[in-house]
Simulated scan of single mutants.
Amino acid sequence: MSTAVATRTRSTKLPSIPITLHRSAAMNLFDDVPSDLPSELVDVLAEGQSVRIERIISTGHKTEPGTWYDQDQAEWVVVLRGEAKLSFDDGEITTMKMGDHILIPAHRRHRVEWTTPNEPTLWLAVFFD
């Protein structure tokens, strides 16, 4: 029995981009998660010239009525704990549970309609060009 092995080669070297760490590189994403928050908590974990990584904690929080996010960068977001519901200005509604992720293109208007009210919803978001 033989096993095929796939390899990837990169034809161009990625440029070196300075990254600023806002927290220790040894941080655990599940540490220091408060359960009682007056507003959503956003921790910028690292950022560079064209990328930003955030840990977001929501406990029953949602986007203010009539407000839409319209971002200059694409956003990839994953729910690590809890649940959430996103809506888009074209009428699409996406319910997200632990492990679900979505890629939101730049300037796709969206909002958070609901997050788990009785436990923190923990998101990891990566914004990039």
Rank of each mutant, 00 (worst) to 15 (best):
V78I: 14
T94L: 13
G99A: 01
D89Q: 10
I102F: 04
I57W: 09
E64C: 02
E64S: 12
V77T: 15
L103W: 11
I56K: 05
V78G: 05
L103F: 11
Q49G: 08
I104R: 02
D70F: 00
G66Q: 06
P65G: 03
D90W: 08
G82L: 01
H61R: 11
E64N: 11
G82V: 09
G99S: 02
I56A: 04
F88Y: 13
I93W: 02
D100Y: 08
T67E: 11
D100H: 10
I102P: 00
R81L: 02
R108A: 04
L86S: 03
W68V: 08
R52A: 05
H101Y: 15
E83M: 10
E64I: 14
D70M: 00
I56W: 09
D90N: 15
K62D: 09
R55F: 05
A84Q: 07
D100I: 07
T63M: 03
Q49S: 13
G91D: 06
G91Q: 08
G48S: 10
Q49V: 15
H107A: 01
H101E: 14
E83F: 06
H101P: 05
Q71A: 02
D90C: 07
E75L: 01
E54T: 12
V51A: 14
I56V: 15
P105R: 06
V78N: 09
D89N: 13
T67M: 12
G48P: 02
G82F: 02
T94M: 11
G91R: 10
Q49A: 14
W68Y: 09
M96V: 04
P65E: 14
I53E: 07
D70L: 02
V78E: 12
E75I: 07
P105N: 07
A106R: 12
D89V: 03
T95Y: 12
E75M: 01
A106L: 03
I104W: 01
L80H: 12
G66V: 12
D89I: 02
W68D: 03
A74T: 04
M98H: 10
